[in-house]
């Protein structure tokens, strides 16, 4: 480069330095690029498949166990469809494979499903911090609020995917091992198979929404530490603690505020007509958790020193 060219380059450099035009316009849709990247990145980890694999295996195990238990015979239990204590919906599975969807969701909701969500949510920020990639996302610049929102959205996507994996696996196993037909609701009325499948899908949605509060809690924990493993362990520890607290009758005063307290209300979707009271309470509680821990996560993350 000649001297003249050099000074020319310097001049244009100086001009650029002086112009205050922020380069490149910000298209609001481009922000979705990060969400897509987040979800595809999540779906390319072996860990995600391990979690989903465990969840998909639960209905298979239940289905096989019920099948062996009833010796493959036609007449199953005419057990009272009260949906209360004990393994919910199990009795109906032999008569109608669709019930395996409800049985599998009831079996995975207390521990397996939220544990998987806890791993993904706890790792969301802390995992990026411990691998050092967080600093590069932030100087990209992803924007702290934007990154947190995208992380939460991807955790929610995982809640839905995980629930659907359980439901789909259960439906497949149920249809394979058991007869499929009209569904007897908890209220004792019978609805057609089509309507029954709609209720099953609705139930899966309700279960996914039930996990949103816990997901927000996990995300908050994730902003507190720079260790991915630590955040996952803490989040899952919180889950187990809450489940224990919820089972101690002497603590009934705090039960309505525990995120897991109304989880089993999803069974009310199977009443005729749908019994909304506890479902609504559940949604309100989840909303409260999302608001409280979402704000806490935001306050923490936007003020955090990122040194890892």
């Amino acid at each position: 480069m000649s001297q003249a060219e050099k000074s020319q380059a310097e001049k244009s450099q100086a001009e650029r330095a002086l112009s205050s035009d922020p380069r490149g316009s910000r298209n609001p849709l481009w922000t979705l690029g990060l969400l897509r990247s987040e979800i595809t990145t999540l779906l390319r980890r072996h860990r995600t498949y391990a979690l989903l694999g465990v969840l998909a295996a639960v209905p298979v195990l239940i289905g096989i166990a019920v099948r062996i238990e009833t010796g493959g015979g036609g007449s199953g239990g005419a057990g009272g469809p009260d949906g209360g204590a004990g393994p919910a919906f199990l009795a109906q599975v032999t008569n109608n494979g669709v019930f395996l969807v409800f049985a599998a969701l009831a079996a995975t909701l207390p521990v397996f499903l939220p544990m998987a969500v806890g791993v993904v949510a706890g790792d969301a920020i802390a995992g990026e911090a411990s691998s050092g990639t967080l600093r590069y996302l932030l100087v990209a610049p992803a924007g702290r609020t934007r990154l947190l929102l995208v992380k939460y959205a991807s955790v929610l996507a995982f809640c839905l995917i995980a629930t659907l994996v359980v439901a789909a696996s259960a439906l497949a196993v149920g249809a394979l091992l058991f007869p499929v037909g009209e569904v007897t609701t908890i209220s004792g009325t019978r609805i057609g198979i089509g309507e029954g499948l709609v209720r099953a899908g609705l139930t899966a949605l309700v279960v996914a929404v039930s996990l949103t509060g816990f997901a927000a809690l996990g995300l908050f924990v994730s902003t507190l530490t720079g260790s991915g493993i630590g955040a996952m362990a803490a989040t899952v520890g919180l889950l187990i603690t809450v489940q224990i607290l919820d089972s101690i009758p002497q603590l009934s005063g705090v039960h309505p505020y525990l995120f897991a307290h109304y989880w089993m209300s999803f069974a009310d979707v199977l009443r005729e007509p749908v019994h909304w009271d506890d479902l609504v309470k559940n949604f309100q509680l989840q909303g409260l958790y999302v608001a409280v821990f979402g704000s806490a996560a935001w306050a923490r993350f936007t003020a955090k020193d990122v040194t890892a």
Partner: peptide, 13 residues
């Protein structure tokens, strides 16, 4: 690199 570029909301996809 694609992931880091997507993190920049002003980068043209």
């Amino acid at each position: 690199l694609l992931r880091y570029d997507r993190a920049d909301p002003t980068a043209d996809p």
